[in-house]
Measured scan of single mutants.
Amino acid sequence: TKKDTKLYCICKTPYDESKFYIGCDRCQNWYHGRCVGILQSEAELIDEYVCPQCQST
């Protein structure tokens, strides 16, 4: 049987260590910077990140 692979981001793909991720400070989920429109250089300046799903609630 195929091992359950945890899926990340709004694009629902397995973790890829070569890509940049940003963690939501509300739901603790991880998102590709590219998918949520945040560059790694911008993320370093953000104190708290809230993902699109949490922003809409």
Rank of each mutant, 00 (worst) to 15 (best):
T1F: 12
T1M: 09
T1A: 03
T1K: 07
K3A: 09
K3M: 08
D4V: 07
D4L: 06
D4N: 10
D4H: 07
T5Y: 13
T5K: 14
T5C: 13
T5F: 11
T5H: 12
K6G: 11
K6Y: 07
K6R: 10
K6N: 12
L7R: 08
L7P: 11
L7W: 09
Y8H: 13
Y8T: 12
Y8R: 10
Y8E: 15
C9T: 01
C9M: 00
C9W: 00
C9F: 01
C9Q: 01
I10V: 07
I10N: 04
I10H: 11
I10A: 03
I10M: 06
I10Y: 06
C11F: 00
C11H: 00
C11W: 00
C11D: 02
C11N: 01
K12S: 09
K12G: 07
K12Q: 14
T13S: 09
T13N: 05
T13E: 07
T13D: 03
T13W: 03
T13H: 03
P14Y: 09
P14A: 14
P14T: 07
P14S: 08
P14M: 10
P14I: 07
Y15S: 03
Y15A: 05
Y15M: 13
Y15L: 09
D16P: 03
D16Q: 08
D16M: 07
E17W: 04
E17M: 09
E17G: 15
E17C: 05
E17I: 08
S18W: 02
S18F: 03
K19H: 14
K19F: 05
K19D: 14
K19M: 11
K19Y: 05
F20V: 04
F20P: 13
F20I: 06
Y21C: 05
Y21P: 02
Y21D: 14
I22E: 00
I22L: 14
I22C: 01
I22A: 03
G23W: 08
G23I: 03
G23C: 13
G23M: 13
G23Y: 12
C24I: 01
C24Y: 01
C24K: 02
D25Q: 15
D25Y: 10
D25N: 13
D25H: 11
D25I: 09
R26Q: 07
R26D: 12
R26M: 07
R26V: 08
C27D: 00
C27L: 00
C27A: 00
C27M: 01
C27G: 02
C27E: 02
C27Q: 00
C27V: 01
Q28Y: 10
Q28L: 09
Q28D: 11
Q28R: 11
N29H: 11
N29Q: 15
N29R: 11
N29K: 09
N29D: 12
N29E: 05
W30T: 15
W30I: 12
W30M: 14
W30D: 10
W30P: 08
W30E: 07
W30K: 15
Y31T: 02
Y31P: 02
Y31Q: 02
Y31F: 14
Y31D: 00
Y31E: 02
H32M: 00
H32F: 01
H32N: 01
G33P: 15
G33R: 12
G33E: 04
G33H: 15
G33I: 14
R34L: 13
R34W: 05
R34V: 15
R34D: 15
R34G: 14
R34S: 14
C35G: 00
C35T: 00
C35L: 01
C35S: 02
C35I: 02
C35N: 00
C35A: 01
C35Q: 01
V36K: 03
V36M: 04
V36L: 09
V36F: 01
G37Y: 04
G37F: 04
G37W: 02
I38N: 03
I38D: 04
I38R: 06
I38M: 11
I38W: 04
I38H: 05
L39N: 15
L39I: 14
L39A: 05
L39T: 11
Q40E: 12
Q40W: 04
Q40G: 11
Q40K: 07
Q40V: 07
Q40D: 09
Q40H: 13
S41V: 12
S41H: 08
S41P: 10
E42W: 03
E42R: 04
E42Q: 13
E42M: 05
E42P: 05
E42G: 05
E42K: 11
A43V: 12
A43L: 09
A43K: 13
A43Y: 11
E44W: 04
L45N: 13
L45Q: 15
L45K: 13
L45D: 12
L45H: 15
L45G: 12
L45W: 07
I46R: 12
I46A: 08
I46K: 13
I46Y: 05
D47V: 09
D47N: 12
D47C: 12
D47Q: 15
D47G: 15
E48W: 05
E48R: 15
E48I: 11
E48K: 10
Y49K: 03
Y49V: 04
Y49I: 03
Y49G: 03
Y49P: 03
V50H: 05
V50R: 09
V50E: 15
V50N: 07
V50F: 10
V50T: 14
V50I: 13
C51W: 00
C51S: 03
C51Q: 00
C51G: 02
C51R: 02
C51T: 00
C51L: 01
P52K: 15
P52F: 14
P52C: 07
P52M: 09
Q53E: 13
Q53Y: 06
Q53G: 14
Q53N: 15
Q53K: 09
Q53T: 15
Q53C: 08
Q53F: 06
C54T: 00
C54A: 01
C54Y: 00
C54N: 01
C54V: 00
Q55K: 14
Q55R: 09
Q55I: 09
Q55H: 08
Q55D: 15
Q55A: 12
S56R: 15
S56Y: 07
S56L: 05
T57P: 12
T57N: 06
T57W: 06
